[in-house]
Design a protein around this nucleic acid. Sequence first.
RNA 1: CGGGGUGUAGCGCAGCCUGGUUUAGCGCACCUGCCUUGGGAGCAGGGGGCCGGAGGUUCAAAUCCUCUCACCCCGACCA
Length: 575
Amino acid sequence: MKFSQYYLPTLKEEPKEAENISHKLMIRAGMIRKVAAGIYDLLPYGLRVIRKVEAIVREEMNRSGAHEVLLPAIQPAELWEESGRWKFYGKELLRIKDRSNRDFCFGPTHEEVIVDLVRKDIRSYKELPLNLYQIQTKFRDEIRPRFGLMRGREFIMKDAYSFHADESSLHEHYEIMHATYTRIFTRCGLNFRPVEADSGAIGGDVTHEFHVLADTGEDTIVTCPTCNYTANLEKATSSQEKFVQKNSTGTEEKQREEVLTTNLHAVEDVARFFHVTPNELIKTLIYVADNEPVAALIRGDQNLNEVKLKNYLCANEITMASEEVIKKVTGGQVGFSGPIGLTCKVIADYSISGMKNFIIGANKADYHFKNTNFTRDFQEPTYTDLRIVTEGDKCPKCSALLMFKRGIEVGQIFKLGTKYSKNMNLTILDKQGKPTHPIMGCYGIGIGRTAQAAIEQNHDNDGIIFPMGVTPFEVIILNLGTQEEKINRAAEELYHKLLQAKCDVLYDDRELRPGFKFKDADLIGIPIHIRIGKKYIENNTVELVIRKDKHISELSLSEAIEKIHSIIAKELSHA
RNA sequence: CGGGGUGUAGCGCAGCCUGGUUUAGCGCACCUGCCUUGGGAGCAGGGGGCCGGAGGUUCAAAUCCUCUCACCCCGACCA
């Protein structure tokens, strides 16, 4: 491609609309333009990256034995009513009506459609396992679209759905997908981690998210530097031993006292009032789990993980209790709840086990108890893991100290179970000739997000540094002397030779001063730059510059071609 | 949806508080000509705006008031 004929509008100034670095760079490098919140145009240069990511995804999915399909973006409401999600999927589902006032939606995901497809034709366990995937535009009316393609409302996603006759087949396939995803993100040149995640209400024992590591990532992931344990913050647990012994603030049980603590409900305020640190308090949090109030106890300096609480209770939904419920359950005011005399179920985090002479709310406005103790003052509760782990906690597997990292979730693999096959009545006959619902898995990759994550992870002050696997062009030729016939001839020759060798090459033939071309080339992040300028006139050499480290080698034209091929081959095989 | 902010030329901004010396300005970009070619050159000339929209206050509104729309940032969702 010749730059002079290409549509690649680069920007010198930082766009106001963007905050995050990869978003800024994508706009400046002429890759995307915004149409509306979370909705973007993909320009030729940006589309090339998307296509490269798609190509890798396609190749690896095909290699795994999955089959590509293309399902409709617009889906009829009946299918969603069958699965039960028409009611439950909130505002994120973009609902539309056709001319006859029939309900449709723009698909945010395709479980319904895929099950509908498969149930038409699959009859026997012999036809399974089956994995169907597509690369397609989704729409989710996100509460807050952000950061360009990172969290758009309209976005391109690869989604795959697998069907299995039994658990072991699903498990086997899950592992294949795990390996496939690992290959995909490796080939994209990304530094990523598979992360254990909570499987939520849908069920299924394991689920993994694939996170690209980046300081600006929106998610926190918890990882052990010693063993391979990596989980997201919701799922992460830590070894409990840290608490069990250390908690007692004195072996002797002191007399419990009721103390006036006017208007003090925040843990920090109460602790300051008593001249103690928050870890000598027990927080009593009242939740409502599927209409059932429940009290959760946790040490004052710790935070409760609502997902863990929800899972422990096997609840579909949990919310913080309203003022009324709190009054009913505790008999006291919000902010002064304590475990003594509660009329609801009580569960406790391990962090409070072994505590002595601790401070709790008195279930009475403006009062706390100090020197409270288990057994004597109230029954010792059941312990479980309810806390959000903190950095420096011990790894649950090997007891090394856990570290926090930031990540961008680019993919997820998930055991779906039979929810959709049951609700939508997808049945096959098993070996015994008995009707049964296939077990499903689903596997997603955000294509645009992956592309942007590659930029988020690979850039410097001058611009993007594309990994070879996803770069729009592998080489850019900078003609630094468009007035010189000799230079023009050499540049053209090099350009055509590289094209013939099936190399993705951009030739900057514009009649601009060199500085301009250097800046553009750095900004748009092509990994290999070839500069043809005055050195070619003087001694027939060109400069080959590696974008990543700006390393320059001076070579003849033919040496340059050879080196280009070897660099590309090496980088691609490396990944 | 709550909290905070921004809308003035293609992009980035100033002007607004304290209404009128503004025919609304600056930098970049754009057009013409000359000149220039190794890190976003220079000179000269030029084009481009209902100051987000609607209503109001006023002799007079980019500027004050009300409403509205759009976008961005911070929180709960997700690929």
